[in-house]
């Protein structure tokens, strides 16, 4: 049986560049711990554990991309940022990647900094401002929330993919020369489609949670989605 590699494997990026990104990822995670503690109360802590476990589960579900013999899977940055906020969300995705690398042999341990940078840090950092902005601009309805999830997911997956391209440009172990542009194009094309899949999963999940427990959706704090039978209340604050 072939090996199931979902993240950057050992040997793809050289050691020095991997080490630099490991240091960078560690610094960002430390910052996330400091800032995330402001958000982490008795209610958010178990919810954040659930978000990490859920992302682990859904990352196992590779969905086919119709262009060929290619699949895609959730990265989780947009989902995490919408449900538990950017700081804790980054930590959630990082926990998943660490468990996958240390226990499931997925994504080289030496490559962990690169994978955390792309999926946990970039994926979340790009999604959060988009989510905050779109939730202000779009109508506060189920469709507005779903559209926010889809757009944030597509952009965040594309950004994570481009993060890899930059890393490959810095320390890729095969000299592609001008072929790097081709790699960037291939990565962008396939991840645009993966982003749509990610968007559908994220939208479904966030809308479901918003319907059952709107108070557990971080991005909705201080507001709620409007349904025909909900009385309007003035929104206080908004997404932080």
């Amino acid at each position: 049986m072939d090996t199931l590699a979902m993240h950057i494997s050992n040997g793809i990026i050289n050691g020095p560049v991997a080490a630099v990104f490991a240091a960078f990822a560690l610094a960002v995670l430390a910052l996330c711990v400091v800032r995330g503690r402001q958000d982490l109360d008795e209610r958010l802590a178990p919810m954040a554990g659930l978000v990490a476990a859920f992302i682990f589960a859904v990352q196992m579900l590779n969905f086919p991309i119709f262009t060929g013999a290619v699949s895609g899977h959730l990265l989780g940055g947009a989902l995490a940022t919408m449900l538990v906020g950017p700081w804790v969300g980054t930590l959630c995705v990082a926990v998943v990647l660490i468990v996958q690398a240390l226990v499931f042999g997925d994504g080289g341990v030496a490559m962990l900094g690169l994978n955390i940078t792309n999926m946990a840090v970039i994926g979340t950092a790009v999604a959060y401002p988009l989510v905050a902005l779109l939730l202000r601009l779009l109508p506060r309805t189920v469709s507005g929330l779903a559209a926010t999830a889809v757009v944030a997911s597509v952009v965040s997956v594309l950004a994570a993919a481009m993060g890899f391209v930059v890393q490959y440009w810095l320390g890729g172990t095969t000299d592609l020369g001008s072929g790097l542009v081709g790699l960037a194009g291939t990565m962008a094309g396939v991840h645009l489609l993966i982003g749509v899949g990610e968007g559908l999963i994220t939208a479904t999940t966030v809308v479901t949670v918003a319907k059952v427990r709107p108070d557990l959706v971080y991005a909705l704090r201080g507001r709620r989605i409007v349904t025909p039978d909900t009385p309007q209340v003035p929104a206080a604050g908004g997404a932080r």
Binding site: A5, M6, F63, A69, V70, M187, L193
Partner: peptide
């Protein structure tokens, strides 16, 4: 789940 290589792997 699909057994095809994912977006990164296939690229």
């Amino acid at each position: 789940a699909s057994a095809h290589p994912d977006g990164l792997d296939s690229s």
